[in-house]
Amino acid sequence: MTGDPGCKVDFYLLGSPRLDPDQLACKLAMMAWERGHRVDVVAEAAHAERLDALMWSSPEGRFLPHAPAAAGDVAPVRLGTEPPADADLVINLTQRALDISPAWRRLLEIVPHDPAEREASREKFKTYRGQGLAPDMHEMN
């Protein structure tokens, strides 16, 4: 698939080593769920397992209702290794740009603070721009 101009892409640039990408992903998923969005988090398999454990207690004192995407569960937040076709908000934690589904309203990318890990995010940004999208950047300090 190619980019759908109706999908809004946001990059969250972590400006400090104190900020944890996984904690931010949980916070963003919680905020989206509370606003009634169906959220899919896409990550590599081992990373998805760590996120599953984290979502039981993050943000602190909260529970983020989630399930593995492969389970076919209708949980409001799903964790998977492949991009979904039917979510309206996707958080991509992989190193690769995703093919945008026409159903997606938003795609969130988290840019790690570590300069060595930022190159993949730069490539994703270029890929989305090449698909006719206009990603926005948000500094997180």
Rank of each mutant, 00 (worst) to 15 (best):
R106H: 11
A97K: 00
K8D: 11
T81G: 10
H47M: 05
V42Q: 04
R118P: 00
E117C: 14
K8F: 12
Q23A: 15
G80R: 08
A32D: 00
G15F: 04
A71R: 11
P115Y: 02
P112C: 12
H138F: 10
P68N: 07
V9N: 12
A97V: 08
A32N: 01
F63Y: 14
E34M: 14
A32H: 04
M1V: 02
D114S: 13
A70K: 08
A32Y: 01
R118V: 04
S121Y: 05
L64V: 04
D99W: 07
M31W: 03
N92R: 09
S57D: 11
R96H: 13
V77H: 02
F125W: 11
R118H: 10
M1N: 06
M137P: 09
D88K: 06
L89I: 10
V74N: 09
E44S: 07
P65F: 02
N92D: 03
R35Y: 00
G3L: 09
D4S: 15
D20T: 06
D99S: 14
R62A: 09
L64S: 04
A116E: 15
E34V: 08
R105L: 08
A43Q: 06
Y12A: 04
I100S: 07
T2V: 14
L107Q: 02
I100C: 02
K27E: 14
T94L: 04
K124E: 05
D136E: 14
E119P: 00
S57F: 10
A116Y: 05
L93Q: 08
E119T: 15
Y128N: 03
E117N: 13
L98K: 06
D20E: 14
P115D: 09
A29N: 00
V41S: 06
A75S: 11
L51S: 12
Q131W: 14
A75I: 00
V90D: 05
W104P: 04
Q23I: 15
D10S: 14
M30D: 15
N141V: 12
E123Y: 11
P84E: 02
E109A: 10
Y128F: 10
A67L: 04
G130I: 08
P135R: 06
V74Q: 13
W104T: 05
M55R: 05
A97N: 01
A46N: 07
L51H: 03
G15M: 15
V9D: 00
V111L: 12
V111A: 08
D40K: 04
G61A: 11
R35G: 12
A85T: 14
A25P: 03
L93D: 07
A75M: 07
G132Q: 12
A69I: 04
R105S: 10
G132Y: 02
A85L: 13
D4Q: 12
D4E: 11
P65A: 03
A134Q: 13
L28A: 05
A53S: 11
E82L: 11
K126M: 06
R38T: 02
E44A: 15
A53Q: 11
I91P: 02
A134W: 10
Q95I: 10
H138C: 02
A75V: 08
P135K: 02
R62S: 13
K124T: 02
P5I: 14
V41C: 01
C26E: 05
M55P: 06
F11W: 11
R105E: 04
S57E: 13
P59Y: 06
I110Y: 01
M55S: 11
G6S: 14
M1G: 15
E49S: 12
F11E: 04
G130V: 03
A71M: 02
R50W: 01
S57K: 13
